[in-house]
Design a protein around this nucleic acid. Sequence first.
RNA 1: GGGGCCGUAGCUCAAUUGGUUAGAGUACCGGACUGUCGAUCCGGUGGUUGCGGGUUCGAGUCCCGUCGGCCUCGCCA
Length: 588
Amino acid sequence: MLRTHTCGELRETNVGETVTISGWVDSYRDHGGLVFIDLRDRYGITQIVFNPDQGQEMHDQARTLRSEDVIQVKAVVESRPEDMFNPKMVTGKIDLLASELTIFSKSKTPPFEPGTSDLPGEELRLRSRFIDLRRKSLQDILALRHRVTQKTREYFNNLDFLEIETPMLGRSTPEGARDYLVPSRIHEGSFYALPQSPQIYKQILMVSGFDRYYQIARCFRDEDLRADRQPEFTQIDIEMAFVDREDILTTVDGLVSCMVKEARNTEISLPLARYTYNDVMERYGSDRPDLRFDMELIDIKEIAEVCDFGVVKNVVGSGGRVRGINAKGAAEKYSRKNIDELTAFVGDYGAKGLAFFRVKDGKLDSPIAKFFSEEHQKAIIEKLEGEPGDLLFFVADKENVTSAALAALRARLGKELELYDPKELNCIWILDFPLLAWNEDENRWVAEHHPFCAIVEEDVPLLETDPGKVRAQSYDLVVNGNEAASGSVRIHDSKIQQKIFDLLGINEEEAESRFGFLLEALRFGAPPHAGIALGLDRWIMVFCELENIRDVIAFPKTQKASDLLSGAPAPVDAQQLKDLFIKLDIPK
RNA sequence: GGGGCCGUAGCUCAAUUGGUUAGAGUACCGGACUGUCGAUCCGGUGGUUGCGGGUUCGAGUCCCGUCGGCCUCGCCA
């Protein structure tokens, strides 16, 4: 070993010991006589003192040390005089008097120092990720991520689950996200697809009798990115046979409790709260509401349809909705200019306007208050439980617009008004999603979750009459407003599966060619099964109170899916393309 | 595909309504200094203002295009 101790472990109890430590120069202070080096590794920082009395040659070398040089030092642990303690460092009561110095490697002047207080732009951090990853905060995050994944494995192993790997090179299937494709050299003109998830393979594992499966699986989706979305991400993937929905929820409750205990060292109370999709859409306008705070959406249709405000009245007349929220005590916190910003904000979600009222002396104060009689103003205040100083917002529009706009506004207000403790964890189940959603562009039904979801038994007749009302036996787990897991009971009958494909406009021939291997497997004795996948990256984000998924991934990609460190993606040699029978045709 | 913000020294930032030689802190280089820990003090190097075009007597500043980063709508079964 090139060290006897790490840079984080020496204390006063080690005084007098001769030790060898290695690490990176975090900072240096050259007093001409004495030279101080703060030496850093993953475990901490320890101060080394170079005294010319210990040898002039070593001392001359020590004076050349600069940030990020990698060195080894043999030294004696000394206690510091009390007035020289550094209370900011856990190793601050000792330092090391160096007797030997080895410089393993000099560093070029780093683009930034890992210990810097003003972090450089993210572009530079990603380009110089080897430096960025030396920062304590990133090292701590990756260590936490490691502990959570190890706990996850321990949890499932104890329950007799098997961790089984599934292929990365698979087959492109219709529906869902855009695939990342990999051309085949051996089969000219054919392509593998990287998995969007191991969905079909894990179902086949159920058919094969591996009744408890899990995998910490990489998934790939070639869609536009967001702060919480990467082109490749990690799922904790789970599938169980001979279970119903309840078994999955209970199993995942246990897993979440276990992860929270590991990440936060806190207990959460089980079972996790459950809501139906219809319930949360009505009360919060979102299928992933942040329930760390209240602020429910309230419908004021009866008042709106009789008010004198033509625009609002017409919305009700044409089947739209008028819904609002109450920002408690916010009347004075939002100026007219602030509210204009909020109006533009809800505009992103399709809302053509944002009505607002300040509650004042039992009446409403607003440019549009005149359209509402005193009686109606009182009714509105009562409905939204308004008190003096409250600020009420309303959106009148098609139902889905009121939902989207008010849900986004609610999330924004909750944050800006600090309505919750950012450290709190709120985990809730959302059950019974619609099976299908109507796609306007393609003029057909598409699967809301995926085409393998089982149907809520009593809704089966609706398949013929009102497909949009059919509920799936599906469930999402939402943490602080993030979709953190999603799953369903699966169809284990090939005939029913075919029926769903029919509804989705995937005919028998196409289904057979694209999903045939799953359908065929289901024909050979498929057990009832169900599963779910947790978005590991998002859980780590929540545990670390981060809003950026790139901060929980060692080597993330930019919004344009580039890896600034390696330069991927990049052109390849003409010969490589030739081997793959690929000719480029790039529009100018 | 749409909308928004940003790009000035290695880094973090500044630069009056368009106005002379683009500044500061830090880093880096040289010097002084035996108890610092954001060391201190003295001196110095460092710029194609992302790139290309345009308007103007004059552009870091205004306009167009382009590249890159971030946020977001659509998209993400």
